[in-house]
């Protein structure tokens, strides 16, 4: 049976791992390749690298980093952050990325999802959604959580899957950085509404939070950054705990 996945996320800025709280207060958290190797050894099922660099050199430094990662790790990884064209994706996949994620660019041009799925296959197209609960509804936010849209998260998820997104990476801005647990309700709603895997992100603080997002939130994978970076939760211990709680996990 297919297992649930544990996915450490590395936010990248100018080739270094960084971590912020609620999308702000960025701190340095180490060399991405070294961290990636360590996570793979510990039993991470997959890795996500989100590049938040905003310079002109970005594309080149990112593709070089992707190649360095691909040379050194033997588990799959997704690369996202500022990807806006078929050409961007082609460069990253050729550099060795397994999947790419699109966010703002896909909202601005939904046809991009279709183009990417047709060209590279749905299996490597991850739609990342940053969402926030406001006025009794979950809305899609853009540009790393800085710009609100009127798009409802559930509607956008459904539309994106119809266009060819092969997976959804859902980050709740209300939960991100709080360590109070994942957003169970919206994760569950989307997981039940679409047929592609859902990666839940934002809010991991304890091992129980992971159990809840799999059992109550129906997530297919759970992503976290700081609890792994700062060694608050060890991946082997987390996986044993989940297995004990009858969640199907690769040990």
């Amino acid at each position: 049976m297919l297992t649930k996945r544990i996915i450490p996320c590395l936010d990248i800025k100018d080739g270094r791992t960084v971590k912020g709280i609620n999308f702000e207060n960025i701190k340095d958290a180490g060399d991405p390749v070294e961290l990636a190797i360590e996570y793979a050894k510990q039993g991470a099922d997959e890795l996500v690298f989100l590049d938040i660099t905003a310079t002109n050199e970005k594309r080149k430094t990112l593709s070089e980093l992707v190649t360095r990662i691909a040379k050194h790790i033997n588990i799959p990884f997704t690369v996202g952050g500022g990807i806006s064209s078929v050409e961007d994706v082609s460069i990253l996949l050729n550099a060795g990325a397994d999947k790419i994620s699109v966010n703002t660019s896909a909202v601005k041009n939904p046809q991009l999802i279709k183009e990417l799925a047709n060209r590279f296959g749905s299996q490597c197209v991850v739609l990342a959604i940053d969402t926030k609960f406001e006025d009794n509804n979950w809305f899609v936010y853009l540009n790393g959580g800085r710009i609100k849209t009127e798009l409802k998260t559930l509607d956008w998820a459904k539309q994106a899957v119809e266009l060819g997104a092969g997976e959804i990476l859902l980050t709740s801005m209300n939960n991100d950085g709080t360590k109070n647990g994942f957003a169970i309700d919206i994760t569950k709603q989307i997981s039940e509404a679409v047929n592609v895997p859902i990666i839940a992100s934002g809010g991991a603080g304890t091992m129980e939070h992971f159990k809840d997002i799999f059992q109550k939130g129906k997530a297919d994978a759970a992503l976290a950054a700081s609890v792994f970076h700062y060694k608050e939760i060890a991946i082997p211990k987390l996986k044993s705990y989940l297995k004990l709680n009858t969640i199907n996990i690769r040990l």
């Binding site: 049976m1 297919l2 047929n195 592609v196 895997p197 690769r250």
Partner: peptide, 15 residues
Amino acid sequence: PSNNAIKVPQIGWNT
């Protein structure tokens, strides 16, 4: 087959 029992694509570790 597209049904509620499984997700498609299958993405992840299986035996």
